[in-house]
Simulated scan of single mutants.
Amino acid sequence: MWSVFALLSALFAALTSILAKVGIEGVNSNLATAIRTAVVLVMAWGMVFLTDAQGGIGEISRKSWLFLILSGLATGASWLCYYRALQIGEASKVVPVDKLSVVITLALAFLFLHEKCTGKSLAGCALIAAGTLVMVL
């Protein structure tokens, strides 16, 4: 089931890039990011209340709070940089560079989460990096 959600995530991420490129024309990229973030915030809390998950807030550990906050800060920084890059660059070049996050994520997962580093994952990283270079050069 995770693969269905992962594919839907990829589809929505692709739509995000195209819709954002059109939407930020003539709009400050930071303001555009704030508007997008407000919409995401409403959607996320809507899902929390729709699924009756709000009761779980009290059960979140300090460690989880810390890492969720740090993740939120990283997301915010990523979105601000992404929207600025998208505003001044071509989507067909910005998006592949942004997707180098896959390579960086795998490297960080190997280093910090001690996930298994396989020949297949290394080959995939190399192909993503090579594909990015081909697309932006």
Rank of each mutant, 00 (worst) to 15 (best):
Trp79Met: 13
Gly58Leu: 02
Ala74Pro: 11
Val97Arg: 02
Ala85Met: 11
Val97Ser: 02
Leu86Val: 05
Ala107Phe: 09
Ala77Gln: 03
Ser92Ala: 11
Leu80Ala: 09
Leu86Gln: 02
Asp98Trp: 09
Val97Thr: 11
Ile104Glu: 01
Cys81Trp: 14
Leu100His: 05
Phe67Val: 03
Ala74Glu: 11
Ala91Trp: 03
Arg62Phe: 14
Gly58Asn: 05
Ser71Lys: 11
Val95Gln: 08
Arg62Leu: 15
Arg84Pro: 07
Ser61Asp: 03
Gly89Glu: 03
Trp79Asp: 07
Gly72Ile: 03
Gly58Glu: 05
Glu59Pro: 10
Leu106Val: 15
Gln87Phe: 03
Ala85Phe: 07
Leu68Ala: 12
Thr105Arg: 04
Lys63Phe: 12
Ala74His: 06
Leu80Ser: 06
Leu86Tyr: 09
Ser64Thr: 15
Val97Asp: 02
Ala74Asp: 10
Ile60Met: 04
Thr105Trp: 11
Glu90Gly: 07
Ser101Arg: 13
Ala74Tyr: 08
Ser92Cys: 05
Phe67Ile: 07
Thr75Gly: 13
Tyr83Ile: 04
Arg84Ser: 10
Ala91Met: 10
Lys99His: 09
Ser64Leu: 12
Val103His: 00
Leu80Glu: 04
Lys63Leu: 15
Leu68Gly: 11
Tyr83Pro: 00
Leu86Pro: 08
Gly89Pro: 01
Ser101Leu: 06
Val97Phe: 02
Trp65Met: 06
Ser101Tyr: 06
Lys93Pro: 10
Leu73Trp: 03
Thr75Ile: 13
Gly56Ser: 08
Glu59Ala: 12
Ser64Ile: 15
Val95Ala: 07
Gly58Tyr: 06
Leu100Ser: 01
Ala77Trp: 09
Gly56Asn: 07
Ile69Asn: 01
Gly72Asp: 06
Leu86Glu: 04
Val103Lys: 00
Tyr82Glu: 10
Ile104Asp: 03
Leu100Trp: 04
Ser64Arg: 13
Lys99Pro: 06
Ser61Ala: 04
Pro96Val: 00
Leu106Trp: 13
Ala107Gly: 11
Val94Asn: 00
